[in-house]
């Protein structure tokens, strides 16, 4: 049960939402954006979060569109995990994103939770951030002064902290249309089905006809307070033969990158680091199997 009273605002447009947010900010009042609420509502029920104002995005039309725009997919921030998982366009052109959406929480959570809400809340165990970072996704953000585009890697700045300010609204996420020969995979490790990821790893791999690596990208959650992308090794692996040793090199790089995992009750730093290795290995292996 929510204990502290708050004012609920239900704007019908993004502009109105931004105006409401900036009013609250100017008045020095704590305000939260509400999308699907799958993280915010439990936090409020537990009394961990008690904003004075809530601005709901659930009455803004058109925030849930998915469309192809040239070599990009433009996905509305209000798109639910379920819609993303079931979208034929996304399945065809960015299957790693549908695979990720399909493994979040459970059916009911996926029916209500949104892509934008997950990005904005940015739990270190969230599944989208590492995948968006590896995809070099771009986030469209509307602020009182206008619109800006921020690369996903620049959105996730620190533990549960994004670069969005309190008066900004994330409206759209743009991800690249992946070449059809790309092998992709997102795998995660949870205590029970539907639980938070202890570790999650995503990989996109393209092969040359001679079975060497044309390109590889890897993104990981659980390795650090922010998503880890294996940028350093990704370039050096291009042109290398893809075999078990290749997979192991990526896994080892992932392990090295996991220098600051967020320890939790059932997964201390050492264990988490090892799981980063294991799940990166599994993600890359699966991506390899799926690459043409």
């Amino acid at each position: 049960m929510i204990r502290a009273p708050f004012q609920l605002h239900r704007p019908h447009s993004i502009d109105e939402a931004v105006r409401l947010l900036s009013q609250c900010v100017q008045n020095g009042e704590d305000v939260k954006l509400l999308a699907g609420g799958q993280s915010l509502m439990p936090s409020m029920n537990l009394g961990l979060v008690a904003p004075a104002h809530i601005v709901s995005l659930n009455h803004v039309a058109g925030l849930d569109s998915i469309r192809r725009d040239g070599d990009m997919l433009a996905i509305g921030a209000g798109t639910t995990h379920h819609a993303l998982a079931e979208s034929e366009v996304v399945q065809a052109h960015c299957p790693i994103l549908s695979e990720t959406a399909a493994c979040i929480g459970d059916v009911q959570v996926r029916n209500r939770g949104t892509l934008g809400g997950s990005i904005g809340h940015f739990d270190p165990a969230a599944d989208y951030p590492p995948v968006l970072v590896l995809l070099d996704a771009a986030c469209q953000i509307v602020s009182p002064s206008g619109e800006r585009t921020v690369a996903a890697k620049d959105v996730f700045v620190d533990y549960m902290t994004t670069s969005l300010s309190a008066d900004e609204v994330l409206t759209e996420i743009r991800v690249p249309v992946l070449p059809s020969d790309t092998g992709t995979a997102y795998v995660k490790f949870t205590r029970v089905e539907g639980g938070f990821a202890i570790v999650g790893a995503g990989a996109c791999l393209r092969l040359n006809p001679d079975n060497t690596c044309r390109s590889i990208r890897v993104g990981i959650c659980g390795a650090a307070p922010v998503p880890v992308r294996l940028t350093a090794i990704e370039d050096t692996l291009t042109g290398k033969a893809v075999d078990d040793a290749f997979v192991e090199m990526v896994a080892a790089a992932a392990y090295e990158s996991a220098h600051d995992p967020v320890a939790e009750l059932h997964a201390d730093a050492d264990y988490k680091r090892e799981m980063v290795r294991v799940f990166t290995r599994r993600a890359v292996k699966t991506a390899w199997e799926r690459a043409d």
Partner: peptide, 13 residues
């Protein structure tokens, strides 16, 4: 669609 009604504000539906 099925949802969990403890994670939704009545005023928001």
């Amino acid at each position: 669609l099925t949802v969990k009604a403890c994670t939704i504000l009545a005023a928001d539906v």
